[in-house]
Write a protein that binds this DNA or RNA. Structure first.
Ligand SMILES: [Mn+2]
Ligand SMILES: [Mn+2]
Ligand SMILES: [Zn+2]
Ligand SMILES: [Zn+2]
Lengths: 135, 135
DNA sequence: AATATAATAATAACAATTACTATTATGTCG
DNA sequence: CGACATAATAGTAATTGTTATTATTATATT
């Protein structure tokens, strides 16, 4: 069914060796260093494929462009509302939440999406402008 | 500073009398029944104003168009991945989460965004197509 | 009523993403 | 090994959701 390609392999390799939860544009620029004429459509298509296969995770919360994570271990994230940095939160995912909500509501709860936000270490002091976007 | 307008008042009134967490387009169509020549830009501008004033809540998670809520009580939501319906979850918001994450990580956590997903009562049985979108 | 200016309608611009299509690469099978 | 079927690609166009622009209108204040 799904064939391999150097484009897809490069993307997965790049996603696995960073912990920065990069954006589509960052991934595009990074892959272009190896495959200069890769198309942006290929980036999007392969990100969706890799996500569907469960090889990567999509961090898609409104307001900011989607970010991707090569670490598939279930874990939560923190997003800096000044610089946009996304970092991992240690500590396990609360799977009981889904069960509790399902029992209380009668809904068929399959999961939840949770993201924390605030100021990162670098941005804690000076809360004005957007200093280092896409970090 | 901020002046009143029949457009803004109509929007707030409409948002307060529904519990459907409507989309921008739904709100647009609804207001147009009162003010047929209202501009979509006005819808967006007033939604952002009302949000900034704390009069409404924006439910903006990636993947689906933004929804709005005239109920400003802090509460969580459930989204049906088949029909798109958004409904309220009873039970209080977990403010301790932010504190715990802040202590563990050293980050300045200001809040979190949480949404549950799964199949609603209507969609629990037949999980194929998209039956009633924007409900 | 005259004035200052916030809000509006209409439209253009924008950013993120998806769709299309002719060409190329990959895996399969004789 | 070829020949074949077709998945994946590059390049481009189109779509979607949203914000910016601008001339006009409505609102609040004197
Ligand atoms: Mn992560
Ligand atoms: Mn609600
Ligand atoms: Zn930061
Ligand atoms: Zn449903």
């Amino acid at each position: 069914m799904s064939r391999s390609s150097k484009q897809k392999e490069a993307m997965l390799r790049i996603l696995r060796r960073t912990t920065s939860h990069p954006s589509v544009d960052w991934i595009y620029e990074e892959v272009r260093r190896e495959i200069p004429n890769i198309s942006l459509g290929t980036i999007y298509r392969n990100l969706n494929m890799l996500k569907a296969e469960g090889a990567i995770i999509e961090l898609s919360f409104g307001g900011a462009p989607t970010r991707y994570d090569g670490n598939c271990q279930p874990h939560y994230h923190f997003r800096c509302i000044k610089c946009g940095r996304v970092c991992d939160i240690d500590g396990q995912v609360n799977g009981d939440l889904d069960k509790r909500v399902a029992e209380d509501s009668g809904l068929e709860v399959l999961g939840h999406r949770l993201e924390f936000y605030g100021f990162c270490q670098d941005c804690g002091g000076c809360k004005e402008s957007n200093a280092h976007p896409d970090r």
